[in-house]
Design a protein around this nucleic acid. Sequence first.
DNA 1: TATCACGGCGGTTCT
DNA 2: CGCCGTGATA
Length: 737
Amino acid sequence: MPLAWGIVQMTLHNEPVLWESLLDTLNPQQKEAVLFKENQLLIVAGAGSGKTRVLMVKVVYLIQKDNVQPEHILAVTFTNKAADEMKERLLSLGISINTGTFHALALKILRSHGHYIGLEKNLVVYDEQDQKQLVKNTIDELSSNMAITEKPADAVEWINRKKDDLIEPDSEQSVTNSNLNSVYKYYNEKLSQCNAVDFGDIILKSIKLLKQYPDLRAYYQHKWQHILVDEYQDTNTAQAEFLKLIAGSNKNLTVVGDPDQSIYGWRGANIDNILYFNKTYPEARLFKLERNYRSTSKILSAANSLIENNLERHKKRLWTDNQKGPNVKALRVNTDREEAHLVCDLIEQHYIKGIPYRDMAVFYRMHSLSRVIEDVLLRRGISYCVIGGLPFYQRKEIKNVIAYLRILFNEADLISWKRIINIPARGIGKKSFEKIVDFTISQKIGFLDALRENKNIAGLSKKVRKECSALSDLLSGYKNKFADNENWEQETEQFFDKIGYIPYLEYAETAEKAGLRVNNVRSFFEAVYEYKKNNPIASLEDFLQTVSLRSGIDEWDEQEDKISLMTLHCAKGLEFNLVFLIGLEEGVLPYIRDTEDVSQIEEERRLCYVGMTRAKENLYLLSSKKRFSYANPVYAEQSRFISEIPDLKTQQPSKMKKQKKYYKPVNYDITASDEKFNQQIDEFLPGDYVYHYDLGKGQILGGTGKGKSKKFVILFDGDKTPQTVVASYAGLTKLEQ
DNA sequence: TATCACGGCGGTTCT
DNA sequence: CGCCGTGATA
């Protein structure tokens, strides 16, 4: 994709865009899909088949050949990052169109017109954490009347699925679980009281709005006469309905996707949207892009063989003219440690051959698998970045900052109030908070007013009253400053100074964590400035609503020369020369233990397929006989997916070229559960010389803990400062010296 | 109300 | 293992 796009950019550099020259870069199938315009069309585009390019050229073609006004074109993508990328690429051709995710678009609609259905403009978006909090309150309150056994997290999941599937409370499909139905209904009421929406609501309420107001619908249908949707296989029922409403009966709808890459079923994505596209759009034309430009033929044929094991799929077989390339390699090792070392060995080998780190990636089924790899990469001094994990805006210290800002423009946001009312500790605890909330309800006033009138709230202590007044003064003051001042961004830092937030972080945590958190908060302030610089007329609300829709993959900076570590879900849409798929074991990938559930296994298989098809030239599939899971060893068979690929002989690493430096002919797979080893560990004493498989020879200076958590302080040869290592994890061997 | 210690439990994660 | 929520105690 980048390569092909490079050609396009070269052709167009500093010249008026010529759609003819762009069309010339396309193959016949791609060309056909671009030129077709009588009806809605579905492009089933295999991995690496240049679908992004087709979408781009189509946009250019529409504008230049068909004289479509750019503002009438809308491109919908799966992530913010994809939206930004598309926008930027087109901008480099001098073209500006609307791009965004379903949620970003729908949120804009709600902000502009949500007041028709009772939503104020200053609404906030609740993420899963906020949802859990609100559902917890809901369950607590309902529990006096009914026995609700579901955990808040499960209830949230249930509610989200219902919203994705367009199922309302009290409807036939909701009352099947009467408890959860009640939670659902009451939770929705609470959301409205907070003037908040969750992610499901963003789509759901937009649908309601568009259905209820035909002129509004007509307005958007006119505004977006040409709609292009990427990653259509991952849309849910609600999103498909939303699309149907904004597309109307117009014939200019293009959706692109690949059913074989549908990996979000567990989150409500409805694969039928793409499989039965013509049920909704009977006249739609189907195009298939089956030529792959990304991978070597060996990688492609391995991936093809795998995915052909899925029964619920549209038949298609990707082909390529690319060279054969090196074999796909399946490697089985003894432990996760060994796997990590092997990955690092191979990384170093390929790096020497000229593949930059930025063109390498390690994929895994779940984040927890990254730890061992990270550890080894770190020790070997190979730079890497982990994509995903805990996103910046979900960190506690950042969520608190956001909560403070949120209440300044949406006083009704009780979840945020609850979050910050006692941070830093000011003696206003749970009980006092509830009293204040009750007061706001009985007096029908806002939270800030309630804080100010604390003398009328029964049962508050003198100290609490004092704190309430102080908080009320502080917040009221800044509420005005933020609202009235165009340069509101200049107030943020001072605001948190007044609150005493940084000192709070410094006192509350250990020095190391405190530093990290303070840095994060400072980064947040920088992000505020950055945002304001790029969006000079934006308000604080705009900023907060933007960040509420951002996360994980959006933070990725691909400029730096680092190896990327990420989950398979994160890998969708990306490509790398060298790809490692680790943890290819039964119980890890496929994760599901229930071998009966075909559709779940098939989704796991698609996940594996997505991972494999990210590789351009080199692909390694690694598995380990033993792996640590929450500090317990787990033994697993090699994944069935490996045996589903013919011609793939699993190699033992012993047959591979080793870098002696890192491989010592001892079994460094010594585990905490090994009794003999535990006894051995207890015999290690300060002064003893030991061998550490990574760090080499060293002398024990001291130790703490015992058993599994036994730690040693060791001064390794060549080091100036000693290091602390966890004995059970370090695989130490005693040296006679 | 604040703090600490303990128990339970853990997927993937876009928006 | 490490995080989170809960319950006991000052």
